[in-house]
């Protein structure tokens, strides 16, 4: 969700104090990414300045990204300290991502309805600890209703499992 400005930002007394700065880290990550792209790009012909090949523009962009990354890192002394970034939701975010990966993996193997049913049972029952009846009702209702609307009413093909379900 977008952050809501609550008032003037607090002044940093000494911007260089407080350990590693977030912009320094992100700038260096961008620089490393640019380096990786330039390295991957080596297999495509660069062509010439007058007749650019398929590797020309990607290299130009990678160089641009690297330069900007370097500037972000160099000018990032006044940014937020890395340790001040709150990661309170990180564990929950990781669980969400892992569950989504599992759903994606299962989608074409056991079909849309079963995999979404299992996904919702996991979230509502295990992660959110809702009452079993509510979990079963929501998971069944959502998986069947969304399939009906999307696959049958709108005609968008959705995967079915080996049992045709």
């Amino acid at each position: 969700m977008a952050e809501i400005p609550a008032g003037p930002a607090q002044d940093t007394q000494d911007p260089e104090k407080g350990g590693l700065k977030s912009d320094r880290v992100s700038g260096l990550v961008l620089l490393a990414l640019a380096g990786l792209i330039a390295w991957l790009n080596r297999e495509f012909p660069l062509g010439t300045l007058a007749d650019p090949g398929p590797g020309y523009v990607p290299l130009l962009l990678a160089v641009g990204l690297g330069v900007i990354g370097l500037l972000v890192a160099l000018l990032g002394g006044r940014s937020e300290a890395l340790r001040d970034i709150r990661w309170t939701e990180a564990r929950r975010a990781a669980v969400i991502l892992v569950a989504c990966v599992a759903l994606t993996f299962a989608l074409e193997r056991i079909g849309y309805r079963l995999s979404v049913f299992a996904f919702l049972v996991f979230f509502l029952g295990v992660v959110e600890r809702k009452k079993p009846l509510a979990v079963v009702l929501v998971a069944t209702g959502f998986s069947l209703a969304s399939f009906h609307v999307v696959a049958i009413l709108l005609g968008v093909p959705l995967p079915r499992g080996p049992w045709g379900f």
Partner: peptide
């Protein structure tokens, strides 16, 4: 707590159905 798992499922459903490809997901 009920909304966000359904929204996630919608996102996966929506992305998959653009080109029937798990790669998009």
């Amino acid at each position: 707590a009920y909304l966000y798992p359904c929204i996630l499922a919608f996102c996966i459903l929506g992305c998959y159905s653009v080109s029937n490809s798990v790669t998009d997901v």
